[in-house]
Design a protein around this nucleic acid. Structure first.
Lengths: 243, 243
DNA sequence: AAGCCTCCTTAACCTTTGTTGGGAACCGGC
DNA sequence: GCCGGTTCCCAACAAAGGTTAAGGAGGCTT
């Protein structure tokens, strides 16, 4: 794969979300990255593991998830091109959750060693990456609100709205349709509901002509109704460093 | 208030959770801190604000919370002595939630400017603080699982178990009883349930002789049953840097 | 083309949690 | 010691979501 494409989504994201100067970009470009193709459903890192590298999503979809003792799974976040879902492993030795590719994906692996020398040598980049993990945490906070307070239909609408906004950064949600390759069971796991109920809600939003979710794609049918149902305010995504 | 006491909980926490060398400790001790007494119920920073300082909890209890458009409130985390609940504001300009003192507390305010020059001058401390925010995120992840997957009684048990473990770091959960000055309404807001249901669950755990929560205190009555109900595994707290 | 697997779909019924509305206990201030 | 507010407590009923069970559509393999 071409070197340019490997980093394009990451650089695009870091530049819009935080801002990079030429030295930062050069330093990131110099990072040694091993690119690998990953098949759908395969784990990247598992709960309890001690990773020695971080994983950049170059193309595709990954999720982080935790499984309770009683076997229920909760999806914690959905990750898209340009994101580094396990950046936290740089300073947290042990994984406290799984990272899984939910669709066939292209991943770039960057060793902790090289990331550490990058952040030590370039405090600017260190702060940009720190900020990335803080935005991650901000998304978790909103996810807590979503699961804790909103009824199921609003939860789904909110998740759709968030993903769409994040995909837009790298131009992956151009029209009113975008990719979201989760099964209904996985949507349920993300929203904290059963697959049966997820199906009910998806059907309801389809019948109400708000969004149509099928075959791994989302089509927004009614922008206004979606916004109302989702109560979506993108401030928590901190996409603009100056606001 | 004595200088020594202002930093004791923080240093104790950072040292057990991450490890500090003499230079780090000296640098932290040199931080200018303004100590203020805060009354119960008063906001420290509000959603939408642009803070210019971070807040260290020296003594007391604070919570972070978000309010939805429809007026429901979700408590995102509970913070105790030794923690810096709004550390994220160092690299996220705008608050995306509220920080509130739920009990009368002693707080220490540290300017972003002085924290920034500290982290720039001392990359070790920068990484320790980065790690603190990553642990924060790990707790959010577990909180998502709690709210998304566990039934109300388990949620409460889990929250009690977590708080107890965190309080233990600074010796604030010595016996089988500890402070948790939340009203039943606030407990409900933390668990994503109504105050009425929070009351039902609290009563149930009391009747079942598992934990007794009353007048802002928690008494653990049956260690084994609590652990079973909570499904608590403290790994996600990352309290030991070498594990 | 048959067969298998995964995912989607639906229905009937059950459980947990929310809602409403009320009363009792406690606490701080006068 | 009384008063007004908060917090706690409880019951009856309603609604959201979970459970179980089963059939159907689509894609892959053989």
């Amino acid at each position: 794969m071409e070197r340019e494409l490997v980093l394009s989504a990451l650089l695009r994201r870091l530049n819009t979300v935080s801002g990079l100067d030429d030295a930062d970009i050069a330093a990131i470009r110099a990072l040694p990255i091993i690119v690998r193709r990953w098949e759908a459903g395969r784990a990247i890192v598992s709960d309890g593991g001690y990773p020695t590298e971080c994983c950049l999503v170059i193309e595709g979809f990954c999720v982080r998830a935790k499984t309770t003792f009683s076997g229920q799974r909760q999806i914690l976040s959905i990750h898209i091109a340009g994101e580094i879902p396990d950046l936290q492993s740089l300073h947290l030795r042990r994984m406290d959750h799984d990272l899984i590719a939910v669709a066939a994906s292209t991943l770039g692996f960057i060793s902790h060693a090289s990331l550490r020398s990058l952040t030590r040598a370039n405090p600017n980049v260190a702060e940009v990456l720190w900020r990335e993990t803080l935005i991650d945490a901000a998304i978790f906070r909103e996810w807590i609100v979503n699961v804790g307070q909103r009824p199921a239909a609003s939860r789904l609408a909110h998740t759709v709205a968030e993903l769409r906004r994040r995909l837009a950064i790298t131009g992956r949600a151009a029209g009113d349709t975008f990719e979201m390759p989760l099964t209904q069971e996985q949507i349920g796991e993300a929203l904290g509901i059963t697959p049966v109920h997820a199906n009910r809600i998806i059907r309801q939003l389809r019948d109400d002509r708000i969004v149509d979710i099928s075959r791994g794609r989302v089509a927004v049918l009614d922008e206004a109704k979606l916004a109302e149902l989702a109560q979506f305010d993108d401030r928590y995504l901190h996409q603009n460093p100056s606001l």
